[in-house]
Design a protein around this nucleic acid. Structure first.
Lengths: 248, 248
DNA sequence: CGTACCGTTGAGCAGGCTCAACCGCTGTGG
DNA sequence: CCACAGCGGTTGAGCCTGCTCAACGGTACG
């Protein structure tokens, strides 16, 4: 019903890494404040052994809200979204998940939202039982998970700040800035991929699709950004762009 | 600068439990879906031994955003808020923390927001080093922390849904409903305490204080709730109230 | 090549924000 | 003990901006 990936987009993005990994910022003091790889090679290998590697096409539903939470997923490449269905039938996107992200955490043994692939994606599916067993054995691994979940907590809180903003261009700018800084991408290309549809962005930012469209046009008209087609953009004026992002 | 606790309010609410505890919903399947005590008596004792027990008055700042994160806090009674200062000088309340909540998680060794007591509160202050050591030794304890952080992640995501709503009465109703269900209170009294100021509520819901005031009046006028003074309320018509809460 | 559906654009409306004044409570100092 | 000053909370008026409804154009996919 949404997502507008083309055939060509589905076929590029080859699986970039051959073992699952997760990235996050540590609790404790580190050199930089950038997210780092949390797992050791040994841990990655162990997870890879216990997990099923799978490739899915765009729009594949990975699990549904309310279903028994059988597995945890590691994103090994591609983009996935999680969303909740509201009573009215509207959808609210909870998060976009990129390479090195983890998703499928349960509450009381059930998934709290639905996960769907936006692009072709490579995933590692780890049964909950296996995970529990590994966490019991490997306290260090458990610590890394604690880091990762805390990192996601920060993300959710950051999003709350975004949603508290009133102006659509400001919200959109914060979203695009998030993509710029948080999303892993091949090289230092200026072009930042925008894999998700405008409706998905709207559902994530709590705006109507029209508002997203108008805000995009406004940012482009002001010369802050340009769109390379509908699924990529570049930041032209980082000075003014950053000003808008932090202008609360 | 905010909080309007009276002397009498400050002196009631005696510390209800003598050892730190944390409540959350488990990952795995359990009987109910209500939050439960996560720590064993042994773990609570151990934390109590390593932690400093402290009582603070309303308005006490516990730590500031950006300061080195020296300790983790357990709320043993009372209400605490965490907030962030925005460039413009505005404040956004991140969370209200009640009994059995944990706060003070760091990012890269520093606190990401400021914590301030709203009421008189009893707290356990656990040095990060001691925590790290305990987590290393006790894998089960670490698992409980993972549960708790995941629970907070859910809270943050729930709040994102609240913020995505447009109408002020709806946001306020969701907030009051959250207090009704999540906040521990003495007995099955119909009166639910509203410890925080209206400005705090506004800063939490991303509304102006005026909007909160008008929304309160509206809910009261419609007979959904009544205020017992400014710092407590009761839900009169749970049917229609619940309808508003889930009316998205 | 055709057919949906996404995305864009426009017009009108509703609801929250801003600015400003007023009220009530607290805590203070004379 | 009382009066005053300060602040949080409420109420009102006008503006601004995003939502709704509707129509159109382009792109993706069969």
């Amino acid at each position: 019903v949404d997502s507008i990936m083309t055939k060509s987009e589905r076929s590029r993005r080859p699986p970039p890494s051959s073992e699952p990994s997760i990235h996050a910022v540590h609790f404790r003091q580190q050199e930089g404040s950038r997210p780092v790889q949390l797992l050791s090679d040994r841990q990655r290998k162990k997870i890879a052994d216990a997990a099923t590697r799978m490739e899915v096409n765009a729009r594949t539903i990975l699990y549904r809200e309310g279903a028994p939470a059988a597995s945890l997923f590691f994103n090994g490449g591609g983009v996935v979204k999680t969303f909740r269905e509201l009573p009215s039938g509207a959808r609210r996107v909870q998060a976009f998940l990129f390479e090195n992200d983890v998703f499928g955490l349960a509450e009381n043994g059930r998934y709290v939202n639905t996960a769907q692939a936006i692009t072709h994606a490579m995933l590692y599916k780890l049964p909950m039982d296996a995970l529990a067993e590994m966490l019991r054995q490997d306290a260090d691994l458990e610590y890394q998970f604690l880091c990762k979940v805390t990192h996601e907590l920060r993300d959710a809180q950051h999003r709350a700040i975004v949603l508290a903003r009133r102006d659509a261009p400001g919200r959109l700018a914060m979203f695009l800035n998030m993509l710029d800084t948080d999303v892993p991408r091949p090289a230092d290309h200026a072009a930042i991929p925008l894999s998700m549809s405008r409706s998905d962005i709207a559902a994530y930012l709590g705006l109507s699709p029209e508002a997203v469209s108008r805000a995009s046009r406004r940012l482009a008209d002001q010369g802050l950004i340009v769109f390379d087609g509908r699924h990529a953009f570049r930041i032209l004026d980082r000075g003014r762009f950053g000003k808008l992002v932090t202008a609360l």
